[in-house]
Simulated scan of single mutants.
Amino acid sequence: MDASRTRIEDAMDDHAFFGGLSPDDRDALIDLVDVRTAPSDTVLFQHGDPCRGFYLLLEGAVHIYRLSPEGRMLVLHVIRPGESFAEVPLFEEGENPTYPATAETLSESTLLFFPAGAFLSFVDEHPRSALHMLGQLAGRLRGAVQQLDALSLHDVQERLARHLIEQAPSSSNLPDLPPTVDLDVPKSVLAAELGTVPETLSRAFRALEEQDLIRRGNSQIALTNVQGLRRLARDS
């Protein structure tokens, strides 16, 4: 897999974290980028490793997780194309910031890597851009709080409905057909992301299908009743 400069520009333009950059600032940042490819099951960094930089995913999937003392995996987030991760340690005070979790690819992936030293030099030279980036990180923190609320206050069907709505495309080239969501990660990973186990997740899928809210295929979920899913997610 390869990434042209145009593709990198498009990925950054579409990402809210970089949305406040002028074209010149964006080009200066692109010059710092290292394009990396990684096969499935590659550990990009581990919890506690020194922070060397952050990533923007172009292709593939990455899960961010912590391990309990008993070895149980807690999936904090599944990164999908167009999302960035591991920026927060760069803005921490103190020397030698570390990654707060482990990142591992779930499939062959193409990533943009922004080295810490070069990126922080860019921030020093472009303070207005840094303020925009910090604002985006604050918004992401609010999203993490909402995710914790969902895990603690809502049942698995409600969490699954919310997840499907969030992953559904905002528009379709075939408006007469129901929107579809790709099952782009293993069921065990999706279950962990939703704070449950695969068996319970399977029952939740079956319950939504029995309510005529979704239709399952081999690797896709058709959202046959989007409003019903929204009500389930909103009323939860």
Rank of each mutant, 00 (worst) to 15 (best):
S4C: 03
T6R: 12
T6Q: 15
M12R: 10
H15F: 01
H15R: 10
R26M: 14
D27H: 15
A28C: 09
I30W: 05
D34T: 10
T37L: 08
A38W: 02
L44Q: 10
Q46V: 02
D49F: 02
G53H: 08
G60S: 14
V62F: 09
I64M: 15
M73Y: 04
V75N: 13
L76E: 15
L76N: 13
V78G: 01
R80W: 06
A86S: 05
P89V: 07
F91L: 13
T98F: 05
A101W: 02
L111N: 08
P115L: 04
D124N: 08
H126R: 09
P127Q: 11
R128P: 04
S129Y: 01
L137T: 07
R142C: 08
A144L: 04
Q146V: 11
L153N: 04
V156I: 02
E158P: 08
L160N: 10
H163Q: 12
L164E: 06
P169F: 03
S170E: 12
N173W: 13
L174T: 15
L177N: 13
V185M: 09
L194M: 05
T196D: 15
E199K: 12
E199L: 13
T200D: 09
S202F: 03
S202G: 07
S202A: 00
A204W: 01
E210C: 00
E210V: 03
I214R: 00
R216E: 02
A222E: 05
L223T: 07
T224H: 12
G228M: 03
R230F: 02
S236N: 04
